[in-house]
């Protein structure tokens, strides 16, 4: 029982950064913009949050900066793909290449002189687990109530996001812009404005996901802190069928894989570490393939926003 509770607690903690970023990318893709820059934005969010915490000690400020950094990179993507009609795949890729490169550079440049300007190996103030009285003592359930603030915030963000997207007027216009921008435009919605807005909001959430990595999940900065999580997020959006509440299952699944990996490594199994580390990537490919094949048969429920990845302009015929 104790083992299950611990595993579940690690799963939720590992899944937190994934869930922030997944919900962020769902907002973005729902508006019709595909942002493959998640890995880069997450990396920059992780770096900037850690750097700010290291120098100021303020966790609140760290989160604000991580959101601003994620949001600015997303704004760049929005400008390129909405205003300049650039290819969204390549634009997103370049955000990732630039973000990872810049984070690696800054990580070796922003540190204290005593450490050769390196941020790696430094410690900064980070988020502690807070046990909720009473609820935190019940077996199994305790896993949910021994988490850090960022994980607790998700208990609100997930249902609110679902409610916003499916039950409010703004959510409806967000979805209509992604499904049929021409009709949305005819109804008086500014397609470009909506797309800019949700791309930036998406980037801010991705930045928060990055911050959770360096300030809570594995406190400290290292150059491969994201380890492809940004790409797994792109897959999680598809698994979730672009629905924020379903995103929880994907994040828990992948968080769980991480937790089991840790557990097995600590226990010293016969399986080589390389194969254990492959698990999340192999599972992503397999699940993605299965989802696509099944999705073809049950059309509708899991399909992507129709206008995803396409530029839109009223002047186009």
């Amino acid at each position: 029982m104790q083992l299950i509770t611990t595993l579940l607690a690690v799963t939720l903690s590992a899944g937190t950064s994934l869930l922030y970023a997944t919900i962020g990318e769902i907002y973005t893709e729902r508006s019709g913009i595909l942002n493959l820059g998640v890995e880069g934005m997450m990396m920059m969010g992780a770096l900037s949050a850690f750097a700010v915490s290291f120098y100021t000690g303020s966790l609140f400020l760290s989160l604000i900066v991580a959101m601003l950094v994620g949001g600015s990179l997303a704004l760049l993507h929005a400008f390129l793909s909405i205003s300049m009609r650039a290819n969204q795949v390549v634009s997103g890729l370049s955000i990732t290449l630039f973000g990872t490169g810049l984070a690696s550079y800054l990580g070796q440049r922003l540190g204290p002189e005593s450490n050769g300007f390196n941020l790696a190996g430094m410690t900064a103030s980070n988020f502690q687990k807070i046990q909720i009285p009473f609820l935190g003592d019940i077996p199994i359930l305790a896993a949910f109530f021994n988490q850090d603030v960022l994980t607790y915030m998700l208990f609100l963000i997930v249902p609110l996001s679902w409610y916003f997207m499916y039950r409010t007027k703004h959510g409806l216009s967000l979805r209509s812009v992604g499904e049929n921008p021409r009709t949305a435009s005819a109804m008086g919605i500014s397609v470009a404005k909506v797309r800019y807005l949700y791309t930036v909001i998406g980037g801010m959430l991705v930045g928060l996901g990055g911050a959770h990595l360096t300030l809570a999940y594995t406190p400290g900065w290292s150059e491969n802190v994201t380890g492809g999580r940004g790409w797994i997020v792109i897959a999680l959006v598809i698994f979730a069928g672009w629905n924020p509440s379903r995103a929880v299952f994907g994040a828990v699944l992948f968080g769980g894989i991480n937790a089991i990996q840790f557990r097995l490594q600590a226990a010293g199994t016969m399986i080589p570490a390389s194969f254990l580390n492959m698990a999340p990537y192999v599972v992503t490919v397999v699940v993605l393939a299965l989802m696509t094949i099944i999705g073809k048969k049950k059309k509708g429920k899991y399909s992507s926003p129709s206008a995803l990845g396409n530029a839109f302009s009223i002047e186009d015929k």
Binding site: L36, I238, L288, T292, I293
Partner: peptide
Amino acid sequence: WGVDETLTTLML
């Protein structure tokens, strides 16, 4: 099957 190639190539 039309499986998204950006993800599969990157994961591999």
